[in-house]
Design a protein around this nucleic acid. Structure first.
Length: 418
RNA sequence: CGGGGAUUGGCGCAGUUGGCUAGCGCGCCGCGUUUGGGACGCGGAGGCCGGAGGUUCGAGUCCUCUAUCCCCGACCA
């Protein structure tokens, strides 16, 4: 992508009404556009990051047998009444709307009810289970207060997965497999070291804990107690002597931290399947309840968390796995030789399957370097009169000050070109 | 929803006790000089001051209502 063609621009000043670091940086660098409080549009650079995150999640969910679907945003009232979640006094952050004829509709905030409702059409026998389905979709929640940029919005992107099992043992095995997949997702996103599986409240209908994935960050709304050696944490909401004993955690090993909930996995037992009368018939012909679990990952929230974490005083600094482009090519000067060499490098790397943001603008070097630092693409290349004379390219990592001169073949090798 | 702060060209801001054609910086357009860490000169374009109503000879400045945004809190199956 040539920067002269890019839809967005960077700005030196950021909107005064954004306080959260993630929103300030992402807006300044042209990744997102604020539509209203808690509602952000994704611009070309931001969308690339969002899609990279989605793809990692997708690959990990697929690897454990998840099947991707896409449920609807518009929701019928009746299935939510069956589980007693339609009433605003029960779930107060619904967005609701209506058909012209007055029929009330909900705007999807989660999808337990519709997925179970759909399941009833396809699952009758023990032979049809277990099932693992997921979707990546916009969710709408009428939060009283949106805050912290992408971390708490009213419209946001979420991956939600649902498991359906025949027995508790089968459910537990699935649950652990999914937990492992979650661990791999955070690892690949580069926040594995600061993201803890955290024991939290399982909800009023179960004695079990749920598991949250909490990324340590000062901006986090949650307070967790971390056992760094065991790589485990416990949410403040269930931080009691009784629970610590149950979990085999010693108070002395725990450190209090602020964290952002970047995922959660929940045992739902048979609450929703029973409420919607979806059962299966076992080998003996008996009707049995289906054990359900749900598993969320906040995709857009993760983008905010990554922006918070992978940034410095100059701007963003994306990890390779989610960077909008791999290489930021900076061309200094307009001389025919420089233009020729930069254009050729752009074509050559593109032909090798390496994604590049090419700064071909006719502006001063300082602005180009500042923009490169702000946008935060991992690898930076410079083509200038100097490099033309030297017959090499200048290479630098966003996260390092070391500058190297590289020949074309060494460069291709470094970038892992085929 | 309670408390606090805010709303003036695309962005960041200033506008004295109400007073003439609403300013500044950045950005934008044109010309020229520049070109390895956000250059400079000259010349331009762009706002009726969130919205509605009111007070007044006169309102960006005062009053009422209202919308929106930010922060703290409450809330967040």
């Amino acid at each position: 992508m040539k920067m002269t063609d890019l839809f967005t621009k960077t700005t030196k000043t950021v909107p005064a009404d954004e306080a959260a670091r993630n929103a300030r940086l992402l807006i300044q660098a042209g990744f997102i556009h604020k539509e209203m409080a808690g509602v952000y549009a994704y611009l070309p650079l931001g969308l690339r990051v969002l899609e990279k995150i989605k793809q990692i999640v997708r690959e990990e969910m697929d690897s454990i047998g998840g099947q991707e679907v896409m449920m609807t945003t518009l929701q019928p009232r009746d299935i939510w009444e069956k589980t007693n979640r339609w009433d605003d006094s029960v779930v107060d952050n619904w967005f609701k709307t209506a058909l012209k004829n007055g029929t009330e509709l909900g705007v999807g905030l989660t999808h337990e009810e519709p997925i179970v409702d759909a399941l009833s059409a396809y699952v009758n026998s023990y032979k049809d289970l277990p099932v693992l389905v997921y979707q990546i979709q916009n969710k709408f929640r009428n939060e009283l207060r949106a805050q912290a940029g992408l971390l708490r919005g009213r419209e946001f992107v979420m991956k939600d997965m649902y498991s359906f099992a025949r027995t508790q043992a089968e459910h537990d095995a699935l649950y652990e497999r999914i937990a492992e997949a979650y661990g791999r997702v955070y690892q690949r996103l580069g926040i594995g070291d600061i993201t803890y599986r955290t024991k939290a409240d399982g909800g009023y209908f179960t004695e079990r804990f749920s598991d949250e994935y909490q990324t340590i960050s000062d901006i986090g709304e949650d307070t967790v107690y971390v056992d760094e050696a065991k790589k485990l944490a416990i949410n403040k909401e269930v931080y009691t002597d009784e629970n610590l004993a149950k979990l085999g955690i010693t108070k002395a090993d725990l450190v209090e931290k602020h964290a952002v909930e970047v995922g959660n996995i929940f045992p739902l037992e048979t609450k929703y399947t029973d409420a919607l009368s979806v059962y299966y018939t076992d080998e003996t012909g008996a009707q049995r309840s289906i054990i359900m679990g749900c598993y969320g990952i906040g995709i857009s929230r993760l983008m905010g968390v990554l922006a918070e974490h992978f940034s410095d005083d100059k701007g963003l600094a994306w990890p390779e796995s989610v960077a909008p482009f791999r290489v930021h090519l900076v061309r200094l000067g307009e001389s025919p030789e420089v233009v020729k060499q930069a254009d050729e490098l752009y074509s050559s790397l593109t032909a090798h399957g390496i994604s590049i943001l090419y700064d071909n603008r006719n502006i001063r070097p300082g602005e180009k370097f500042a923009d490169a630092d702000l946008i935060g693409i991992p690898h930076r290349l410079v083509v200038s009169d100097k490099t033309v004379q030297a017959g090499s390219y200048e290479y630098k990592l966003r996260t390092s000050d070391a500058v190297q001169q590289l020949q074309s073949d060494a460069l291709l090798k470094l970038l892992g070109a085929k």
